[in-house]
Amino acid sequence: MTDAPKRTPLFDLHVELGGKMVDFAGWEMPVQYPMGIMGEHNQCREKAALFDVSHMGQVMLKGENVGEKLEAICPQVFSSLKEGKARYGFFTNDAGGIMDDLIVSNAGDHFFVVVNAALRHQDIPHMKASLEGVEVTEIFDRALIAVQGPSAEDVVGGLCPAARDLKFMETAIGDIDGVACRISRLGYTGEDGFEISIPKDKAIGIARAFLAHEDCEPAGLGARDSLRLEAGLCLYGNDIDQTTSPVEANLSWAIQKRRREEGGFPGSARIQKELAEGTMRKLVGIRPEGRAPARQGVEIQNLGGDTIGQITSGGFGPTVGGPVAMGYVSAGHDRPGEKVNLIIRGKAQPAEVVALPFVTQNYKR
């Protein structure tokens, strides 16, 4: 017998709004609403969309020198992360692969960490075992809502004026309808927006208040995936995994200079070597020339018929107006403009290597 999927605090609202519910990482989540994936995608690009991301793991780290201790298991600099600032990071394993990617925020008296839903069972024991003297507490009594898009500041700021003052990758406690919420200016769509941690018994009321804004509509997992793909953002389990190094995945920007030079994190020997000498493969953007989308697992060949890589994520890009994909190709084939073939249902389909992202990211710096 398998466990029944868990439900987020917003489940009843999803059903009321006509959400099509699916099992995702052990959670019953809306893949789309009556507006449809294309409409929800465009809503986020043009106005604002509300996503339920309560399935993500929310974790509180308390103790002395938490940032410094995190540096033993992550290649990022966290010891000097200022209060009110958030940073993208990842756990690496001893082979230099990525165990999971995450957002770490300095919340003042503790660090607030958000990990991927499917990996909380790995990440939380990993932190408990590795962070000596740090109290690691998973938060089960809060929902997590993302409001994303060019109108997100008006939607959230209309209820919490202090949110307007936050810049990209900043976080603060704000009052929304009399409820203390953690508001972080970040997201997974390439658009400006916020992720808001809310007491679970207040989540539906606050979600309704956001959705009452004329520019805000609900959006599901389908639009979230097409938005992040157009923005060139990696999905754990597709574009990055335990075998992928940050250098291969074009995530070197997330390793600060001191850590690149000093090392001292799991897998640092491989990662420092790749930073210095390059990698055997690289994550690239791919634009199929036809209308057929290239899904995960599609083989990439050079024009001579040799296999040079594989698609890791792909689908239709509504903003781009055609299919878009990401995948790994052998070193030397990663330059934008290189013509390749994608083997889709046994037939070679022409495509081109392109620079990421497909759509310009619109964060508020």
Rank of each mutant, 00 (worst) to 15 (best):
M1C: 05
D3C: 04
P5D: 14
K6D: 03
P9F: 06
F11V: 06
G19M: 02
G26E: 08
E28N: 08
M29Y: 03
P30L: 08
Y33I: 10
P34S: 10
M35D: 13
M35T: 14
H41P: 03
Q43V: 05
R45W: 15
R45M: 14
R45N: 11
K47P: 05
A49W: 06
L50E: 00
S54P: 04
M56C: 15
Q58R: 14
Q58N: 08
Q58L: 10
V59C: 13
G67I: 02
K69R: 13
C74V: 07
Q76S: 10
S79A: 12
K82P: 05
Y88P: 06
F90E: 05
G97F: 04
I98A: 08
D100H: 08
D109Q: 07
F112S: 11
V113P: 08
V115K: 00
N116K: 10
A117S: 11
Q122W: 07
H126E: 14
K128S: 15
E132V: 13
V134W: 12
R142P: 05
V147Q: 05
P150Q: 07
A152L: 06
A152D: 03
E153T: 12
V155M: 04
C160I: 02
R164W: 00
R164A: 13
K167A: 12
E170H: 12
I173S: 05
R182W: 10
D192V: 11
S197A: 15
I198D: 04
K200C: 08
A203V: 09
A207E: 13
A209I: 06
A209C: 01
L221Q: 06
A223N: 01
L235H: 04
N238Q: 13
N238H: 12
D239A: 05
T243H: 02
S245H: 05
S245D: 09
S245R: 07
V247D: 03
N250T: 06
L251K: 00
W253A: 10
Q256A: 11
K257V: 14
F265D: 04
A269V: 10
Q272P: 01
Q272M: 15
L275Q: 07
M280I: 01
L283F: 03
L283R: 09
R291D: 15
G297S: 03
G305L: 13
G305P: 08
G305S: 14
V320E: 11
G321A: 13
G321T: 15
G327P: 00
A331W: 09
G332Y: 14
G332S: 13
P336N: 10
V340W: 00
L342G: 04
R345M: 11
G346M: 08
V353N: 02
P357N: 01
F358E: 04
V359G: 01
V359H: 03
V359T: 11
N362Y: 05
Y363K: 06
